[in-house]
Computed example of a mutant assay.
Amino acid sequence: MYKNLAAAFAAALLSLPATSQPPPPLKIAWVHVAPLTPAGWVRQHEEGREAVQAALGQRVQTRSVENVPEGADAERVIRDLAQQGYGLIFTPSFGYMEPTLKVARDFPQVKFESITGYKTAPNVATANARYYEGRYLAGVAAGRMTRTHVAGYVAGFPIPEVLQGLNAFTLGMRSVDPAAQVKVIWLNTWFDPPREREAAMTLFNQQADVVAFHSASTAVMAAAQERGKLAIAYHSDMRFAAPDAQLLAVTHHWGDYYTRRARQVLDGTWKPQQFWGGVRDGMVKVEHFGPRVPPAVRDEVLARQRDLAAGRLNPFAGPIQDNRGNPVVPPGRALSDERILGMDFLVEGVQGTLGK
Rank of each mutant, 00 (worst) to 15 (best):
Q83G: 13
F9K: 04
G290C: 09
W186K: 07
A168H: 02
P194M: 06
Y96W: 09
A180H: 01
D177M: 06
H253D: 06
A6N: 07
P194D: 04
A54Y: 00
Q44P: 06
E161N: 13
Q351M: 14
I28V: 14
R195T: 05
G85Q: 13
W190Q: 05
I232N: 00
E196D: 07
L203D: 04
Q181V: 13
N123A: 04
G152L: 07
Q109M: 11
L341Q: 11
A104V: 01
G282H: 07
A179H: 15
R227P: 06
I89G: 05
G290P: 04
Q109S: 14
Q206A: 12
W254S: 05
E196T: 02
Y136W: 13
R195G: 02
N326T: 14
N167A: 09
P35D: 10
Y118E: 08
G85D: 12
A127W: 06
G156P: 02
A249S: 11
T126L: 04
P22E: 13
G290K: 02
G255A: 06
T259D: 14
R280V: 05
M343P: 05
M201W: 03
A121Y: 11
Y2W: 14
R261H: 10
V329G: 10
W41D: 14
A334Q: 15
L247E: 00
R43I: 00
T353P: 03
V182W: 05
G139P: 06
A12G: 03
G290I: 11
P319K: 15
L166V: 15
T189F: 02
E300H: 09
G282F: 09
A310M: 13
P178K: 01
K119C: 01
T146W: 06
H252N: 14
G318Y: 08
I232W: 03
G172F: 06
S236D: 01
